[in-house]
Amino acid sequence: MNRQAFNALLSEAHTRNDYSALIDLVPYARLIGIECLRLGDDMVFRLPAQADNIGNPVLPALHGGVIAGFMEHAALLHLLMFMGSAHLPKTIDFSVDYLRAGHYRDTFAQCQVWRQGRRVANVAITAWQTTQTEPIATARAHFKVDES
């Protein structure tokens, strides 16, 4: 997709507050079922409870890899939306700390771009289920962003 077509898609999504077209571009995001909500100037990402995302069958709890994948993709979408680049940033590294069990229920994530350089962006991601002040996981990642 070229930049113009992407920007049209993005502004359409912003206007309608419906980001499904943007999410549908990436098969993995569809697989785990990521959603995106705009609350004022904030973007909040949602991962609805879905049985196929379960790792621990006994609790039951979401697979830690799904929680991490959700957080990584939230950061990618966050950068896309605020950079206006038509290309997905590339992940350089990704580090996640698991703080609480990710139960079989909806999960939310929010991102904070701590530094956006010309080539590299540093993003912190927080994921929670009950309340944002009790995160189930925090992560930080570096992304290679494209200048064009």
């Binding site: 098969p27 995001a29 991490a68 990584e72």
Partner: peptide, 13 residues
């Protein structure tokens, strides 16, 4: 290319 999330799931597992 495969999403980083799938690689993370592979390596966590």
């Amino acid at each position: 290319g495969i999403h980083g999330g799938a690689i993370t799931t592979l390596m966590d597992t």
